[in-house]
Design a protein around this nucleic acid. Sequence first.
RNA 1: GGACUCGUAGCCUAGCCUGGACAGGGCGUCGGCCUUCUAAGCCGAAGAUCGCGGGUUCGAAUCCCGCCGAGUCCGCCA
Length: 555
Amino acid sequence: MLLEVKREARELIIKALGFEIEVPLEEPRQGYGDLATAVCFSLAKKLKKPPVEIAEELASRIDLSRARFIERVEALNGFINFYLNFNALAEAVVGEILEKGGEYGKGRPKGERIILEHTSANPDGPLHIGHGRNAIIGDALARILRFSGYEVTTQYYLNDMGKQLAVVVLGLRRLELDRSSKPDHAIAQVYVEANKMVEAQPELQEELSLLMRAYEAGEKEVVEEFRSAAEYCLRGIKETLSRLGIAHDLFTWESEFVRRGDVDDVVERLRSTKYAREDGVLYLDLEEFGIEKELVLRRSDGTYLYATRDIAHHLWKAKLGKLINVWGADHKLLAKQLSAVLRILGEEEPEFIIYEFISLPGGKMSTRRGVFISLDELIDEAVSRAYAEVAKRRPQESEEFKASVAESVGIAAVRFNIVRISPEKAMVFRWEEALDFERQGAPFIQYAYARATRILEKAQPPSSFKVRELTENERALVKLLASFPEVVSQAAEQRRPSMLASYLIELATAFHRFYMFDPVLRSEHRDFRLNLVKATRSVLGSAMRLLGIPVLEMM
RNA sequence: GGACUCGUAGCCUAGCCUGGACAGGGCGUCGGCCUUCUAAGCCGAAGAUCGCGGGUUCGAAUCCCGCCGAGUCCGCCA
């Protein structure tokens, strides 16, 4: 809806001007109108007049007689500020939201399929908080893209041909798997122990490479060992993801591409390109693409590398749709190489969402050394912290209520604290910060929703309402509600879920303020306000669902 | 050493792609608001040379160059 208002503003300017020009519009701070444009500055040179004069002349020529949403313009400091007719806007926006409900803000079907790869952690232990960042960003993006009109398939690429899984298998041959603990944690225990063994007994290296070769060759018993180990670990990983509300549509195994011959095929294709070099090893010279590092495809012993298998994997995926990968910053080089190779092969390059690392105050995490904070730990701590809060605030409520609210609040806090930070910022994990449910955090948003719900429980909004002069808080709310569709599409196109997080904070803030100053039930504007509350609740709910934040009716 | 990313108040962060009017929030600190729809809320105060230096521009947190600091990568590992 705000888009329509902006279109109206542009048209007014162009009509007054008498010629086409790009009109940038911004949302100014308090005191400078509801929309503003600095177009007069760019016109200054062309018209050879100072911006202030242009603005004044232009403003005086704007004809508002047929405008729907703009009721006043002013020229100030060379800017043209627009003041909106909030009565008209409120009526239109609230009406549209109540009519469309959860469909409000949804994009038209784009007819485009996207394969969104995220998480893809090695099956050698539980997800740690770094994988959590991947999964949470990836899942939010998937939800946003779907809402925005794309057909999205989320995919987990399972790296089963690496040394890690071989180490796990080696460990399982001589260590007892702790069946009493969560599967992924039990596997991690074996993995850490087995790594120590391999380090202490170098002769085990031989067994490791034997294992890997047997697996690649598809020896039945070995395949069984690898698969059951990986699947066992994956069971635990899926459990964690599911607790966060995350599920993948598709799991693909790295080994498929080797056994099916896809890797052989693509290597052959690449070997015949002008980028191929062979001197014992087969590699690609990608300098033309600004990549210094040569990309080795096949070792001197004839075996393939991870990157080679990933090329086959991506070539396969590229047939299914547009590719987006959520990858850690350590994979930046591989991302560049892969893009170059797909280009060589005549396929569209994948898009990468690269997120920087989450480190511990003491340094990097390492599954191998057992130095990491698992997502499970983080969730458990967050939920128990949330439980303490509910118990303190709602002591009279049932145990069941407290436990279920705590679960939702804990999950919401974990997801929100991660998704709200831009992926390109490196994070240092500190328990105090992770468990500090800051004022404008997830509970703040959930609470806004619960407050709206409570009001509506007491009175249903009538189907028709009159809009009178709006309060400042109502205006802020209406404007935010009007901008939701634009926020969604921008977050989708720019692939930035964090934009929705900022929006949600703003919307919840506006609602809490409204709640504080503008009583609903006892108001003479009750009819309109009830509808406004309903509309706000609806959009809050939509936005929360887009970030995977559990919605609570009561807390 | 090279490549990429980041550097905004004591701490965390938005804005940077698409340059505009006194740089938004939050935590923490200090001071207020519950006989009124749940105070997980609201209001106010103090706190910023937007890492440093140059350039482009009427105008730079935003674009360009250099420097400094941090992270990541630079395996015939995955």
